[in-house]
Computed example of a mutant assay.
Amino acid sequence: MESIYWILISVIFLVGFIGLVFPIIPSVLFIIGGMLLYGVLFSFEPFNWLFWSVQIIFVLLLFAADYVANMLGVKKYGGSKAAIWGSTIGILAGPFIIPVIGLLIGPFAGAILAELIVHKKDFNTSVKIGLGSVFGFISSVAAKAFIQLLMVGYFTIEVL
């Protein structure tokens, strides 16, 4: 039975990592959910105040990495808050409109449309800002993957 429990916990962690490329899946909730499932199925004993404090710091870093990477990607190319919002909406809507590739096209198109409509920027400038949003998204995914690996790694060290 113990093997089945570990498989369930691993699958929940895996879903958390899938959420990195499908933003509709709340990655961090699945990572924390896997830890809580371990506590329910095995024991909460390894999870002291230090463990939860470190995990909360990681969660805060996840949210910061997501916002900062997107903002820096857009701002580096002269984008506005509207482009950041357009990019964020594109990240969420893109995969539904165009599965898989929409994950990159969504933030690109969202940032471009926001700059064209809200700030009336020229098309070439808007495209550069759109590319910045894609670079920001990719950077965000990489940073969040690293942080989630740290979360799961720390969890593994504590429970084994």
Rank of each mutant, 00 (worst) to 15 (best):
F44K: 03
W52T: 08
I101R: 02
G73I: 02
G73P: 05
F44S: 08
W52E: 05
F51S: 07
F51M: 05
E45T: 13
F51T: 04
G34D: 06
N70M: 14
L92N: 00
A64Y: 10
V59N: 02
G78W: 06
I98M: 14
A93E: 02
V100T: 12
S80A: 07
S43P: 04
A82Q: 12
D66C: 00
L37F: 11
L104R: 03
I32G: 03
S80F: 09
L50W: 11
Y67M: 06
L36F: 12
G102A: 10
I32L: 13
A64I: 15
L50S: 13
G90M: 07
S87C: 09
L41H: 06
L36R: 08
P95M: 10
I57L: 15
G73K: 03
I84L: 15
L72Y: 09
G34P: 05
W49G: 03
L37I: 10
F96Q: 08
F96N: 00
G86C: 03
V68A: 11
G86I: 05
S80R: 11
S43V: 04
Y38K: 11
V74G: 10
I98H: 06
Y38W: 13
I57K: 02
P99T: 06
S87F: 09
G86Q: 07
L92R: 02
L72H: 07
L61M: 15
Y38M: 09
F51N: 04
G39P: 01
L41G: 05
G102W: 06
L41S: 10
P95Y: 04
P99H: 05
G33R: 08
V59S: 11
A64R: 03
G79Y: 09
L37G: 06
L37S: 12
G94V: 07
F58K: 10
L103H: 01
L36S: 01
S43G: 04
N70S: 14
F44G: 02
L61K: 11
N48F: 04
I91L: 14
W52P: 02
L50Q: 14
S43I: 03
V40N: 07
M35D: 02
G78L: 10
L62G: 11
P95E: 07
G34N: 04
G78F: 08
L50P: 00
L104Y: 10
Q55L: 11
I56A: 15
P46C: 11
W49N: 13
I32H: 01
I57W: 03
A65S: 13
K75M: 06
L61R: 08
F96C: 02
P95H: 08
F51C: 02
I98C: 07
G78I: 01
L37T: 11
N70Y: 02
V100Y: 10
A83V: 06
I56Q: 00
V68L: 15
Y67Q: 00
